[in-house]
Amino acid sequence: MSFKIERGHILPSHNSRVNIEKNNSNIDFKDVLQQTIKGKEKIKISGHAQQRMLERNIRLQPMDIHRIEEAMEDLEKKGAKESLMIYKDMAIIASINNRTIITAMGKEDVDIVTNIDSTMIIK
């Protein structure tokens, strides 16, 4: 079986069906990338944070996401980089520059938090 390399992907050269499937998946990736670049996705949730949220039964509704986005904007204006945000019954640690939630926990689970430069209580 022979292969060819196209745009950093290894593709079998004899099977056009596989190439078509690869190209379709690249289109989906391009759409997602364009949406992200255009700013439609204002915050990200890391894989680690997603796992912790599942384990701790923490759910974010669209309004919660909006409030957290606003808080990140306020923190960025103040020069924050890594922040602890207390919101409702949860504590969120986020990278403000990357607009990424790093981890999440119930606020009663917060004992010691290190490597942050700011804290915000979201009301």
Score class of each variant (00 low, 15 high):
Asn98His: 07
Glu76Thr: 04
Pro62Ser: 06
Ile37Ser: 13
Met53Asn: 05
Asp28Thr: 08
Met1Tyr: 14
Ala104Leu: 03
Lys123Ser: 05
Ala49Ile: 02
Ile37Phe: 10
Asp28Cys: 05
Gln35Ile: 07
Ile101Pro: 00
Arg99Tyr: 14
Met63Trp: 13
Ile37Lys: 15
Arg56Ala: 02
Asn57Arg: 12
Ile5Cys: 02
Lys44Phe: 10
Glu69Tyr: 10
Thr103Ile: 02
Ser83Glu: 06
Gln34Leu: 08
Arg59Phe: 08
Ile37Thr: 07
Glu21Cys: 06
Ser46Gly: 07
Asp111Pro: 06
Gln51Asp: 14
Ile96Lys: 00
Lys42Tyr: 09
Ile10Ala: 02
Ser2Pro: 12
Gly39Ile: 02
Asp64Val: 00
Leu60Ser: 04
Asp111Phe: 13
Gly47His: 13
Met1Asp: 15
Tyr87His: 03
Val32Tyr: 15
Met85Tyr: 04
Leu11Pro: 05
Asn115Gly: 12
Glu21Met: 09
Ile86Asp: 02
Leu60His: 07
Ser83Gln: 01
Ile96Trp: 00
Asp89Gly: 04
Ser2Asn: 12
Glu73Tyr: 08
Met72Asp: 01
Thr114Leu: 07
Glu108Asp: 09
Asn19Ile: 07
Met85Arg: 00
Ser46Arg: 02
Ser95Cys: 02
Met72Gln: 00
Asn26Lys: 13
Gln61Trp: 08
Glu41Trp: 10
Asn98Met: 06
Arg99Ser: 05
Ile96Phe: 03
Thr114Gly: 13
His14Ser: 12
Glu6His: 11
Ala94Asn: 01
Val18Ala: 14
Asn19Gly: 15
Leu11Cys: 09
Ile20Gln: 15
Lys38Ser: 15
Gln61Phe: 08
Asp89Trp: 04
Leu54Ile: 08
His66Phe: 07
Ile116Lys: 01
Lys44Val: 06
Met72His: 01
Asp117His: 14
Lys77Ser: 05
Glu73Val: 10
Gly8Leu: 04
Ser118Gln: 08
Asp74Thr: 10
Met90Trp: 04
Lys30Ala: 13
Lys77Cys: 03
Asn57Ala: 15
Asn15Ile: 02
Lys42Arg: 12
Gln51Ile: 07
His9Cys: 03
Asn23Trp: 08
Asn24Gly: 06
Gly8Glu: 05
Glu41Ala: 09
Lys22Gly: 02
Met72Leu: 05
Val110Cys: 12
Tyr87Gly: 00
Ser25Phe: 05
Val113Cys: 14
Ile86Ser: 04
Ile5Gly: 01
Gly47Thr: 07
Lys22His: 13
Thr103Pro: 00
Asp89Phe: 03
Asn98Thr: 06
Met85Gly: 00
Arg52Asp: 11
Ile112Ala: 11
Asn19Arg: 13
Arg17His: 12
Ile10Cys: 05
Met72Asn: 01
Arg56His: 10
Lys123Asn: 09
Glu82Lys: 01
Ile37Arg: 15
Ile58Glu: 14
Lys107Cys: 06
Glu73Thr: 12
Lys30Val: 05
Ser95Gln: 03
Glu70Thr: 11
Asp117Cys: 08
Glu76Leu: 05
Ala91Ser: 08
Gly106Lys: 11
Ile58Lys: 13
Gln34Glu: 12
Ile121Asp: 11
Met90Pro: 02
Gln51Asn: 13
Phe3Asp: 15
Met105Gln: 14
